[in-house]
Amino acid sequence: MTYFLTQLANGLSYGLILGLIAVGFVIVFTSTGVLNFAHGSVLLTGAYLVAILHDPIGFWPAVVVGILGAALLGVLINAVLVRNLAEPNPGTAAILMLGVDILLLTELTRRIGNRVLPIGAPWGADVIAIGGVTLPTSRAIAAGVAVVVFALLWYLFARTDTGVAMRAAAADGDTASLMGIRLSRTGATGWALAGALAAIAGVLLASFPAPGVAPTLAISAFAAIPAWVLGGFDSVVGAIVGGLIIGVVTALAVGYEAELHVLGRGLGEVVPYAVMIIVLLVRPSGLFGRKEAVRV
């Protein structure tokens, strides 16, 4: 039982981080209609900034720089590239982001080399144990940070003008612009938010038990795609729930791999996608997605 609870705790904390990444996908998608294939390299950029700066300027200032840097990167990608597409549609935008991903990842790989850059987080390698259930302290902190970030997001979207404007723009951009809401600005805000969330997730993913920042960190953003799809493409809540589901399912699949051996080795990698496909079979628009309205 404690074993189960340990895996559950692991899964939930990991799921919350996945949620942070998935929310970034949702926000970029709803505010500018872009499937952000470069989300992973933005995440890596944020984490990389923290890793190289924590020594000279201290961890917390470095985190601030990392978050701002990733946010700025997002804004620039949107302003310089996405908004200047010759043929703006989701398909070309997605491929554009692949191009961006190639550029960012190549350059970061070159800079990082074969080092693993420590993130320099003050929480060390401790583990919390409550009644036999163990969880790395950093993971508990990560879960806490994620919950706080989600609360802030909720406040932003429900209580502030900017947030309401973003939701309005996502729901009906055409009408929102008639309210004086500049779609270019909500788009920029969306990219900035997504970048900031990615940087936070990057720092959390690079801290213990992970060793630090390495180029493979960028791939971890892909793990959030099933969470995003499963939650419904345009739902922030869905992304968080999706993250939790994927996190828990993955942790359990790994934890009970021995018992599930009939299904083949390496189950942890395929299970998130299997869950995603099953959910889509039952609910094609995901758990929390708006059903596409059929209008004539």
């Binding site: 729901a171 009906d172 009408t175 929102a176 708006r290």
Partner: peptide
């Protein structure tokens, strides 16, 4: 073209 998923208050706010 009201924002269907936003509350009345939020619609006004927008």
């Amino acid at each position: 073209r009201i924002f269907r998923d936003l509350t009345v208050e939020e619609n006004l706010r927008a």
